[in-house]
């Protein structure tokens, strides 16, 4: 459900009109706009936002682990349009078993390292990513440290 208070915002209105049912929910909290996007349509939405809505930058791509809830992961995109002086947060829910989502590197080349980081630390695989390798940790590392079931100290479970 998209609340009425944000339906009138130009970005949301345009998205709902051009790509219906791609946005499932949204909120305007503390002045920050968040939209929940269906995971399978993320590339389409990002492409539209970049080329038609001037969100030329992706500030960061990261993830949140809601373990033990399902769907377990949320992939979070922070978009920025210097021209409109506006920021926008997109979120996609990704299941805990075999977490996978399409890569947005085709939209912004800058998403490359951010997605690699999310892959490295959360174990979320980005489909069609040109270079999906660990970036922070050694190639031989086992496990994904930013997952909630990965201990901060002591032995790995």
């Amino acid at each position: 459900m998209i609340p009425d208070e944000i339906k009138t915002l130009p970005v949301v209105a345009a998205l709902v009109e051009v790509l219906p049912e791609s946005v499932s929910a949204g909120k305007l909290d503390r002045g920050e706009l968040t939209l929940e996007v269906a995971a399978e349509r993320i590339v389409e939405v990002c492409h539209y936002l970049k080329h038609e809505q001037k969100f030329v930058r992706v500030s960061t791509v990261t993830a949140i682990d809601w373990y033990p809830e399902e769907p377990r992961f949320e992939v979070v995109y922070h978009l920025h349009s210097p021209e409109r002086n506006q920021r926008l947060r997109l979120k996609c829910k990704v299941p805990g078993a075999d977490p996978e989502i399409d890569s947005t590197t085709g939209v912004w080349r800058g998403a490359n390292w951010y997605e690699r980081e999310a892959f490295d630390l959360f174990g979320i695989r980005f489909r069609n990513h040109p270079d999906l390798r660990r970036i922070m940790l050694p190639e031989t590392w086992e496990g994904y440290p930013l997952r909630k079931d990965y201990p901060v100290t002591g032995d790995r479970v």
Binding site: D29, R30, E32, T34, S59, T60, T62, I64, V76, H78, H80, R87, R89
Partner: peptide, 27 residues
Amino acid sequence: GEVYQVIESPRGELGYYVVSDGTAKPY
């Protein structure tokens, strides 16, 4: 709640994305 705060650091855009679940430690 969640907040993405941006400032202009000497090197460029510095952003902190903080997610809280209502407890005393950040989620």
